[in-house]
Design a binder for these strands. Sequence first.
DNA 1: CGTTCACTTGACTTGGCTCAATTCAAGTGG
DNA 2: CCACTTGAATTGAGCCAAGTCAAGTGAACG
Lengths: 242, 242
Amino acid sequence: MKPAIAQRSFTVAVESPCRLPTSHRPAAVQTSHRRDEEPQGQRQRVGQHAHIFREGDRADRLYQLVDGAVMLYKLLPDGRRQVVELLSAGDVFGLSALPVYDCSSETLVASNVIAYERAAVEQSPELLRRLSAHVHAQLCALHEHAVLLGRKSALERVATFVMHCVPGRGGFDCAGPRCGGDSAVVRLGMTRQEIADYLGLTLETVSRAFSELRRRGIIAIDKQEEVRVHDVCRICQLTGAH
Amino acid sequence: MKPAIAQRSFTVAVESPCRLPTSHRPAAVQTSHRRDEEPQGQRQRVGQHAHIFREGDRADRLYQLVDGAVMLYKLLPDGRRQVVELLSAGDVFGLSALPVYDCSSETLVASNVIAYERAAVEQSPELLRRLSAHVHAQLCALHEHAVLLGRKSALERVATFVMHCVPGRGGFDCAGPRCGGDSAVVRLGMTRQEIADYLGLTLETVSRAFSELRRRGIIAIDKQEEVRVHDVCRICQLTGAH
DNA sequence: CGTTCACTTGACTTGGCTCAATTCAAGTGG
DNA sequence: CCACTTGAATTGAGCCAAGTCAAGTGAACG
């Protein structure tokens, strides 16, 4: 049960560059770029379920997600895992207080990221400013998640997670209980185990919570990864936040 | 059981300025300063157990802790509370993705803070850069805390908390198991309830965990707020991180 | 010297975990 | 096209860690 953290490696799973529309050279170690020292960073395409970096790797670059989805997770020595952030377009990751990364990053789906040299970012005020806005939003999301992990029941956690997946809802800008029987079809994009590791539960408990929601007629599970939410408002009511 | 969040107010509990060594004027609403528009921000002294801002207040300024201790917490509508961050000197708070604060901030002990206008910070690259370093460290601390809340047992949580209180240990720079029977006396500076709200437990469970540590001869509780740690290494072993 | 407030401890309850079996969906190959 | 394999999800049964409720203790203070 010893964790994957032991397999330290410079995991840079760049997808076959032939899919890139730009004239990007298929450089071996992805360090070269069109113009050297460009502060705008370097775009990379990363395949599904690939690690961009691992906990403990040297943290000499940081990343911004252009599109796709990435999860950040940490492992305890005995193998327990906690997904600490779920990232979507615009989010920043790879920041660290130490010279090494504090967590691992893995794509949930094929994604595009921009890589910046850590030193370059500290040099460029404009870049720092642009990234900061996103970092602050992520800070708030982490606060919210701490409430979930520390104080919410299993059902509330899953309800919160489903809300989070509904486009335009569940975030900071969620309009709250603007009821009206609005339904939505939601792609989870994660396995039950990954959801469990995000919500601080076991996969069985997550499964039971979904079943409970189905039993109550609040959701229907179409294709195991696809959830039909009949009434978004009713789920929102179960999150504990209203 | 309805929460204190209902009592919205502009809680700026500035301590009696006569204790200030500087020639700070006892301004009524603390907006004036020696030189207007100073990007360096404005120093304030805040008494113990005072709110600097509350969840939902307009977030037009952000703060850096000079000395003392501050906790940030969030409330659920039914009164459940989660302390989301414990801050010490240098830490930044009051950042938000929205125009209002996402959490409340309360001093644990009398503290000094520097208040910056939110707009001014975005203008000043140097200031932003200086604050960012701390923000990144706090991000890592939040990741660490998510692991605690999501995956650690009650005893592991309390052990982690005690480690966190040992000066120079438990943080990112903790040397790990450099054993050698080093003891330490630790001031908690928080009630059992506050600790519980930080660790996602109840105050009874926190109390039992302390008793268990005492029973095992790992700590001794001198004055209820003061814990004598006989062997830091043994506590560290119980945190789940080693 | 009583009052208060924080903490501790005990008895009981329960939500979520563990372990194990079953179902379901999606290949794979004969 | 169907039997088989494989991996993920669901469901059930039992258990235990942590929560709840209720005393009891002890230090601080007027």
